[in-house]
Design a protein around this nucleic acid. Structure first.
Lengths: 212, 212
DNA sequence: TGGAAAGGCTAATGCTCAGTAGCCTTGATA
DNA sequence: TATCAAGGCTACTGAGCATTAGCCTTTCCA
């Protein structure tokens, strides 16, 4: 099942309280990590006691898994939407990177937790998340490979170039702040441009953007 | 006190067993995280019981702090050594990035833990580590600023360019494997070249390296 | 109006963990 | 050879944690 197929299926519905709990857990997991977050704290964040959480959630582990699976699926969706109908491989790469980076600013907590807490998942959940992550990586590598095959891109290593592009997104999720002095668009456009220079597309002006 | 000043001071000596414990703890912290690692496991990794660790170490927290402080200091040293006596700002940037990336391959576990476990430190230790990290970031930003001031570099944002360069290193620490199909030198040289194109240095041939 | 479902609560359970107490062995030294 | 420090060990302590049990109130519909 591909990411875009998954998008066509209904994602599980949540009650408002269920949503609130998931959001509170997300913030806490991002702040102090899954292991260091207690059910008492998650409960307190939505105004109830720890044990009451279990009227809405089956376990702390499932809460983490649900957050991570959802964010991976959404990332696939965003990618699919960004490159749909774009034929030029350089355009496709730029769009993919822009979508990737924008996602990591807009949903930085989820992306952050999604990257960092993989090892806190139990085996079954980890396999599911790692599977989605690999398939996302493959989408990127596929674009780079296609560009190389068409002699539009020139890279020392397809793998290295793809990793570098993906790593930039993770970095963004780690340091981006909405009230910081770098705007979302600034980061997105700059990284989109950077992606093209990284893969050696000829004729990208300004490399890292116009001086400013 | 700067990173290079710190290098001049004697770093605390450790007994062989102390070293072994630190190494075992490092591996476990990297693998499953600080919170999820027990003193029993650290002990078992060096052939003793958990409580016996306390003949060599004052606490699990201190073990983490010692690992993180040492790696930050070493990173400063490596940087200082790499750029010492290099006058051309583009050369300096390339050398700094190469040293940064090489460090993140050679000492990936420490670098990985150093980045990921900051939130597991108590307040005092965290402040010390964050302080060293900021000063390291400033060194990078300083090089980029200098290149921009000299009109050698052309970037949309000094901060963004510096963050991107540092983030690539962290990415390497996350996925690099000695037995993988990307060699240390390959990554180092490619990323050194990436760095120059990222800051818009004119005349960098091949951008992301020769096709291969 | 009555009864059940939803969703709170407190108390309890059972487990795990970091760290301490106190004991024992070994090996070097005086 | 007597002593002492180093460095193991087991048993214990005290705390914290996820989760369950069981109870109570509110709300909503038959």
């Amino acid at each position: 099942m591909s990411g875009s197929d998954r998008a066509l299926l209904a994602r599980p519905q949540l009650t408002p309280r269920g949503r609130a709990i998931r959001a509170a857990a997300l913030t806490l997991f991002a702040e102090r990590g899954y292991e260091a977050t207690t059910t008492t704290e998650i409960g307190a964040a939505v105004g109830i006691r720890g044990p009451s959480l279990y009227k809405h959630v089956s376990s702390k582990q499932d809460l983490l898994a649900a957050i991570m699976l959802e964010v991976m699926d959404d990332l696939h969706d965003v990618h699919a939407l960004a490159v749909a109908g774009v034929d030029d491989v350089a355009d496709r790469l730029r769009r993919a990177v822009e979508a990737h980076v924008r996602f990591h600013t807009r949903r930085r907590l989820e992306a952050f937790v999604g990257n960092r807490e993989i090892r806190s998942l139990n085996e079954a959940n980890r396999a599911a998340v790692v599977d989605r992550r690999s398939s996302y990586e493959r989408l990127f590598r596929g674009i780079v490979e296609e560009g190389v095959a068409a002699s539009r891109f020139h890279v020392a290593s397809v793998k290295l170039a793809s990793y570098a592009l993906l790593d930039l997104g993770m970095g963004v999720a780690a340091w981006y702040r909405e009230d910081g002095d770098l705007s979302e668009d600034e980061i997105v456009y700059t990284y989109g441009r950077f992606a093209l220079t990284l893969v050696g597309v000829a004729g990208v002006a300004g490399v890292a953007g116009v001086a400013g």
